[in-house]
Each structure stands twice: as C-alpha cells, then as structure tokens.
C-alpha cells in the first residue's frame, strides 16, 4: 500500500543518512540478464575476451545497472514514482564480482513545482575500488503511485 504520511519527521535534523543498503555481488549471469533486459549489448559487459582485448582485467558492470539499484533503493524507501529528478556520475569502473553498498543522505527539504520534496545525496561503493557512483536525487515527500 502507498504510505501517505511524511517520509521523515518534521523536526528531523538534516543532513540525515539513511541506513545503507547492501547488494549481492555482481555475477556474469546477472550481467548477461541485464544485457537482455536493458537492451545494452556492449560486449565489455558480457564477453571477457573482448573486455581484456580492450585493456580491462575482465568484464565490467554497466553503470546503468548500478543506477537501477540506486533507483530501487529510492523507490523502496519513498514509494513508486516519487523520484522527480536525479543525476549520477559514474566515477570509477565497477569490476565483475564486486559487492556494492548503496548510500543515501537527506540533504534538505525543498519544493519542486509546489510539491514538497527532499533532496538527497546518493552514492555507491564497492570494496575493490571505493566510490563508483555519486549523484543527487529529488524525491517527493508524499508519494503517490499514479500521477503526481
């Protein structure tokens, strides 16, 4: 069901970091599935021979798979169709078998087109290389599943 209460208490001090979300290690099977699911068939994500020929140690995890997980974290927390605008930079290569952790920190209360929203920092870390994704998101504080 859609929770129509505020996402955070009105007196919550900001910035406020949400509990990190741990992910499973990225496997070759998942990257193959994502190639089909996402439509991105770039061989550096699914063919280790080609990845090595291009100077990578092995296949690399698609940035959009990481961003999809960030989106899932935000939607699981704030509700479906609540992300109003967001952007990320892919700051480092994510190697196959890396185990990601997803982070979000509420920075401020804000308003977009008359709607109460929260602005968050979001980022992803993997132990092998550190931070691989860094960005910001604005989510509606009262989510509705349908039209905004």
């Amino acid at each position: 069901m859609i929770d129509m209460t505020d996402l955070i208490p009105s007196d919550l001090a900001l910035p406020h970091r949400l509990p990190p979300v741990g992910g499973h290690a990225f496997t070759r099977a998942q990257l193959a599935l994502f190639a089909g699911g996402s439509g991105d068939h770039n061989p550096i994500h699914i063919d280790s021979d080609i990845a090595k020929a291009k100077g990578f140690e092995d296949v690399i995890v698609p940035g959009m798979l990481l961003m999809a997980q960030v989106g899932k974290m935000l939607a699981d927390w704030a509700g479906p169709s609540t992300i109003r605008r967001w952007n990320v930079r892919f700051t480092n290569i994510t190697p196959i078998l890396a185990t990601p952790t997803y982070f979000a920190e509420i920075l401020e209360r804000t308003e977009v087109a008359g709607e109460r929203c929260l602005r968050l920092a979001v980022w992803v870390e993997v132990p092998e290389v550190g931070e691989v994704v860094r960005g910001e998101a604005v989510v509606a504080e009262r989510g509705e599943a349908g039209e905004r």
Partner: peptide, 11 residues
C-alpha cells in the same frame, strides 16, 4: 558512460 540524469513528470 560518464553521467546520467533523469527528470520525471509522469509515470
């Protein structure tokens, strides 16, 4: 892929 951004107006 260096950066990606989305603005969402309708589902």
């Amino acid at each position: 892929h260096g950066e990606q951004a989305f603005e969402s107006f309708h589902p």
